[in-house]
Design a protein around this nucleic acid. Structure first.
Lengths: 218, 218
DNA sequence: GTGCAATCGATATTTTTTTATCGATAAAAT
DNA sequence: ATTTTATCGATAAAAAAATATCGATTGCAC
C-alpha cells in the first residue's frame, strides 16, 4: 500500500485530498465521461481550482489539455498508483465488537488496498467464530500470529481501556503502523506510525463549521 | 455543541488538536496530577511545545506558570467550553447496519456533546426495533421527524448508493450539518456543513507515514 | 479559417501554520 | 538568600499551504 518511491514527495495535505478526487473521478467515469477540468473538480469538492491543478501536477504523469481538462482514466490510474490502491497490503484487526465487526464487514477496504487477514478478540464467545469470512483468533495470539503472518498494519477497535496493551502487543509482533479507533492516545515508539480515527476531532470540526454557518446567517 | 461566540477565532488546525489535548489531560487528571507543562504534552503527543502553548493560549482564559505549567482542570474546562462538550446537541442517525449500529451503540458520544435521538433505516426487519435503546424509524419519516424534532445534525451510515438521497432528505428536514460515513462525495448546498469521515483518506495518510518510516530505515 | 471561451501550467503573492529564539518568572535546590 | 532550572509568553523567522495572476494553448462555434 502506498508507492514508496513517490508518495514521499507529496504533501500530507495533498494526500488527504486524493481520495476525494478519486471518488469524484470514479463517479464521472461511471457516468461515461472521459475528461474533467480542474474547475469542475474544484466546484464540486468546494476547493480552489489552482489547488486542484497543483495537486494533480504532483501526482500525475500526464498534462491536462486546455479547454478539455484531464483524462479521467489517467488520473484514476495515477491516484491508484500513489495511494497503492492496486497492490494489496495485509492487516490485522483487533476487536470484534460493534465497531470491529463493522470494519471487518466492510468489503470496501479491498478497494483501498487493505486486506484484513485476521481478527482478534478476547471474548471466548467470539473466538473461533468468523466475521465476514475472517476467522476470529484469541487475543492471546496477537504477538505470535502477527509475526507469523508478517503483517505490518494493525487496526485497533477495542474499548479504550484495552487499547494500549493491544498496541503494545501488535508492536511486539512486528506491526509498524496502527490505525486506532479507540478514543485514547496511544503511547508508541517514534518509529511506529499511528493514525487516530478521531471521532471527537471530526465532530469538533463539523461543529465549528456549523457554528460558522449559523453565525453568518444571523 | 461548540460555543458560537468563541470557536470562531480558533483555527481549524487547532480545533483538530483539541480533542487530543482533552484526552491527554483527562488521563493526567485521572492519575491525580494537578498541573502539566506544554513540554510534557508536546512530548507525549509528538507535537512542538511552542505549538501547544499557542494552541492553549487561544482557547484558555488562564495563564500557565513558569516551572509548573498549566492547571489541568482549567484547561479541561476551557476545551469543554470551546468544543461544547458540556452542552448536548441532538442528532439523528441514518442507517442501522453494521456501522450505524456501532455508532448508535457508542455511548461515548455523550461525552462529546452529541445525543442521538432517532435512528432511521429502510429495512422493514429493522424498523420499530431499537439499537442501544434508540428507536429505529422508517427512513420514509426522515423529513417529517427531523423537522418535528428540530434536529440540526444528521449522521449518515448507509451504503454509498443511498447516501445522496439520505442527505437530500435530511436537508429537506432542516438539518444543517452532516457527518458522512458513506464513501461518497455528497452534493449539498453551500450553507450546509459536511464532514466526511473519510476512511480512505485516513488510510492514505497512515500509509504515507508508514512508507516514510520504512524508507528512513533502509 | 477566425475568433471566442475555457482551460492549462508557471510564477508570484498572500495567508496560514509551524518552529525558533529569548528575556522574564517562579518554584526548587543549594 | 542565592543560584539553578524548568517553564512561560511574546516576538520573530521559517516553512508550508492556499490563492491570485497571466500568457499560452486548444477545442468549438460561427
Amino acid at each position: 500500500m502506498g508507492n514508496n518511491k513517490e508518495i514521499q514527495n507529496v504533501s500530507k495535505a495533498t494526500i488527504g485530498r486524493l481520495p476525494a478526487y478519486h471518488r469524484y473521478l470514479k463517479e464521472k467515469e461511471a457516468a461515461g465521461e472521459k475528461t474533467v477540468s480542474s474547475t469542475a473538480i474544484a466546484e464540486e469538492l468546494h476547493l480552489n481550482a489552482v489547488q486542484v491543478r497543483k495537486d494533480l501536477s504532483v501526482i500525475s504523469t500526464v498534462a491536462g489539455k486546455p479547454k478539455l481538462g484531464f483524462e479521467i482514466a489517467d488520473l484514476i490510474g495515477d491516484i491508484n498508483r500513489i495511494l497503492g490502491y492496486d497492490n494489496v497490503t495485509d492487516a490485522v484487526l483487533v476487536g470484534a465488537g460493534g465497531l470491529g465487526s463493522a470494519l471487518a464487514g466492510y468489503d470496501g477496504f479491498k478497494n483501498y488496498g487493505l486486506n484484513i487477514v485476521a481478527v482478534f478478540d478476547s471474548d471466548p464467545e467470539r473466538i473461533d467464530k468468523t466475521v465476514n469470512g475472517i476467522r476470529i483468533f484469541d487475543a492471546e495470539q496477537i504477538r505470535h500470529l502477527v509475526r507469523r503472518l508478517n503483517v505490518l498494519i494493525g487496526i485497533i477497535a477495542v474499548p479504550r481501556g484495552a487499547a494500549q496493551q493491544v498496541a503494545d502487543e501488535l508492536i511486539e509482533g512486528g506491526v509498524r503502523a496502527i490505525w486506532n479507533f479507540a478514543p485514547v492516545h496511544l503511547n508508541v515508539p517514534e518509529n511506529i506510525a499511528v493514525k487516530n480515527e478521531d471521532m471527537a476531532a471530526s465532530l469538533a470540526i463539523l461543529s465549528k463549521r456549523l457554528a460558522e454557518i449559523l453565525i453568518s446567517e444571523k
